[in-house]
Write a protein that binds this DNA or RNA. Structure first.
Lengths: 222, 222
DNA sequence: TGCAAACTTGCACTAGATGTACTTTTATGG
DNA sequence: CCATAAAAGTACATCTAGTGCAAGTTTGCA
């Protein structure tokens, strides 16, 4: 080592270039998608704009969808971490509530992020293949999230209850938020809708584990 | 009219052929998918097996995914009808419970259907693009379902509450069922898991509209 | 029998995605 | 400072899903 004796301080030229290329692809992709539409933009054009070959694009992102939704994976990982760091006095319901709140905070935090995620949300609402890919990412993460929640609260929730809780809360927030947005709701209204949805869904699980799931006659309970 | 004076009795040769072709495509597709895997099967092979041109395949199904998941759309439409036919003495929760029960009945009804849907489910679990497409269908239907539920119960539920209810229940059932299945659960166990999940999710909405949504401090309620 | 509408087909073409072999760039040890 | 290997990037070939179009073929019906 010639330049620095402190471990891990300078990322190295190679790493820096890689990161720059990656960022260029992301930026140019979003710009082009907004400028001329997702389907009208080809991968080759994105690569051209970022000054790399088409083949190189696919060594950074596995698909055209991924270049736009890479950040989704990150926020989902954050949610996983939130669950893993359960505070000792959290009830499962509290924990899930904080997951939702944290996720919201993260996507709506800075103004710049709010602008970007608004554009991306807009694209997801109008382009089916993006919606499908987003739903896939979200679903696959929910599986991990359910396992994590069960691990974090092994005494209160069995795996099925944890699944129902995670699936219920995320499903409720997802649909309510989306429908509110579709109706032309402002960011504040969307946030409020999501909050109410989470509240409704979480109300169901507060009853669980207190020995008072009464059974639902309409479901053919035995 | 030469053959029959009763309106709508005989579907006509053209219609019958179309139906036969459609069925042949569906059957051959499923057979090939199971025989050699989804990704390993090309649309051209399916068309060949059903003795039509590749081009014709795409005049019956818009995508390779659709030939496998055409029935999903049907069962989702059935769910929509169930909501539209609300009985006067149903609470929203009862109604949603019946939607879930009816959907289950429909997919698990006959032995033949159970066998087919087991194969299809297996494929959906292992093939990402199928999972994504299925999730997309389900999500888009949920939007309609939420609107229908709101229409059916305009006094009890506003649109956001209806969204939360639909999203919550379906999200819970979906994830719990899937996770149970992944763990090698038997059909009975999956059914039981889904039932419990629906119960938990529906418990949340029984509280709604009774003036007793207490607010959740962890969600930053005002 | 003949005509029109519906259905099917072949063909050309675009675009996403992958494998491979080759060149350029970066890291590092002597 | 140079040799060398590892890593990244590129060119090229190929495969498949999916679409548009201009034929041809079958069916419905008068």
């Amino acid at each position: 080592m010639h330049y620095s004796s402190v471990m891990g301080e300078v990322p190295g030229l190679r790493e820096r270039k890689k990161l720059r290329t990656r960022q260029a692809l992301i930026t140019e992709a979003l710009r082009l998608f907004l400028e001329k539409g997702y389907e009208q933009t080809t991968v080759s054009e994105i690569a051209m704009a970022a000054e790399v070959s088409t083949r190189t694009f696919f060594s950074y992102f596995a698909s055209k969808e991924e270049v736009l939704l890479h950040h989704v994976r990150e926020s989902l990982d954050r949610a996983l971490r939130t669950v893993a760091e359960r505070r000792s006095d959290d009830s499962p319901a509290d924990l899930l509530a904080r997951v939702v709140a944290t996720a919201f905070e993260a996507t709506m935090g800075s103004a710049e992020m709010r602008r970007d995620s608004a554009s991306i949300t807009q694209l997801m609402m109008t382009v089916p293949s993006l919606r499908a890919y987003g739903l896939l990412l979200l679903f696959d993460t929910q599986r991990e999230l359910a396992e994590a929640l069960h691990q974090a609260c092994p005494e209160e929730l069995d795996l099925i209850e944890a699944s129902a809780a995670v699936g219920g809360v995320i499903g409720a927030v997802k649909l309510a938020g989306f429908i509110c947005l579709r109706r032309g709701g402002s960011p504040d209204e969307v946030a409020e809708a999501s909050r109410r949805a989470a509240e409704i869904a979480i109300a169901g699980m507060r009853a669980v584990g207190k020995g008072e799931t009464p059974g639902d006659p309409a479901l053919g309970n035995r």
